[in-house]
Nucleic acid binder design. Structure first.
Lengths: 213, 213
DNA sequence: CAATCATGGATAGTGAGGCTATCCAAGGAT
DNA sequence: ATCCTTGGATAGCCTCACTATCCATGATTG
């Protein structure tokens, strides 16, 4: 198919598709003449993935390029590619502001938590860094974030992860599997957060509406 | 304390504090002369909250202003203020792009899920909208998001919410309680997501490393 | 076969958002 | 009395995700 059709079927404007092509988020089409290129279903799928990452997952364009490069990198084995791809995904927080003491306390809490959960502690892991800076923010505000408070969250996370990894394993082709891992990691985040908000609203209205009555 | 001290104790630059004052995220200090104003611990606390919302929670400045205005609004009762404040918080997704059919299917899934969980369905709820658009993105990519898949997420969310609402109720002063609700809603998001990523990494490495061996 | 149109590629521009740098008048410190 | 600092106002900067315009060339059509 041509650019125009790719645009039509994906709902993404031609200008934006060109932008993604420039930025290397989308592989170039097969040149069919000096003025035309041919795109296939693979391009359409990739384009939709990019769109989901950027718009739903709020992944910066430059980051999405790294993630997809890792997914496509034939020189690595499956696990390395997966690790590289999700490591490139932006963590939820990215701040280093704040005093040393608070950060150290947060670091300690994070490590203790992971140890209790039986997880390996990998300080370079972006998710670990993000966890620490989030805990530091909570500490700085004086809100509780003790290990005992966090443990339930960790157990829930473990449940989710088991479920999701199993889901990803159902895909057969290696690249498809990696794409699924990336897509599900990113796209289930808003699902999870939305459900949490809905549950909070439900719980709050139950307690406040019928509670003190 | 003066602006300079507020800056020093919060780690936020004077220019940025002035910006927040301009934007109404921070109430003005008590004017002590034509050239000086006095800030107190309350300002410091509020500033840290703003910082957490903006930097960790990625809440846009304009949105943070609405949220805080709701928290401070004495003309509403507690539950209304809470509802207004969290409703103003940005949902995880905000896209309407895509075909009608997919969106309707997502809408249907979301409603069925909430009904099964015993939650009220409030279509205007930003979290509901966010849920629907996230599900639509998943559908468009051809990934599974059936109610049966989502139910476990919903139950986990309900657990989290119960835990968190109980936590918030421990705060006594109404405003403090609302601040806590906002802060915990926003700041636990990155914690939860980080833990999920860590759990995924753990689970993946377990399966791939020792699994096929 | 010629006139027109569409296509892909390159380049520059746009708008939002979150700061940040500069200026200025006036009060406080020495 | 002089110098320094403070708070307030204004305008500028930087990033990022697009978007609009040009242009040369090949496709299309009467």
């Amino acid at each position: 198919m041509r650019l125009a059709e790719l645009c039509e079927r994906s709902g993404v404007s031609i200008a934006t598709i060109k932008y993604y092509l420039r930025e290397g988020l989308l592989p170039p089409g097969r040149r069919v003449s000096a003025t035309q290129a041919e795109y296939d279903e693979e391009h359409l799928r990739r384009l939709r993935l990019v769109r989901a990452l950027v718009q739903v997952g709020r992944v910066p364009v430059a980051t999405a390029r790294e993630v997809l490069a890792a997914v496509d990198d034939d020189s690595m084995d499956q696990l390395s590619r997966l690790g590289t791809a999700v490591a490139a995904l932006p963590g939820a927080a990215r701040v280093t502001e704040g005093d040393q003491a608070t950060t150290e306390a947060a670091e300690h809490t994070a490590e203790e938590l992971q140890t209790l959960l039986g997880w390996r502690v990998v300080p370079e892991n972006p998710a670990h860094v993000s966890l620490v800076s989030s805990l530091a923010a909570l500490l700085r505000l004086g809100y509780p974030c003790e290990v005992s408070q966090l443990l339930p969250y960790g157990r829930l996370a473990a449940e989710l992860a088991a479920h999701e990894v199993a889901l990803v394993e159902e895909f057969e082709a290696p690249t498809t599997q990696l794409e699924a891992a990336v897509a599900l990691t990113v796209l289930y985040e808003p699902v999870l957060l939305s459900l949490r908000r809905l549950a909070q609203a439900e719980e709050a209205s139950r307690r406040f509406d019928t509670g003190p009555a």
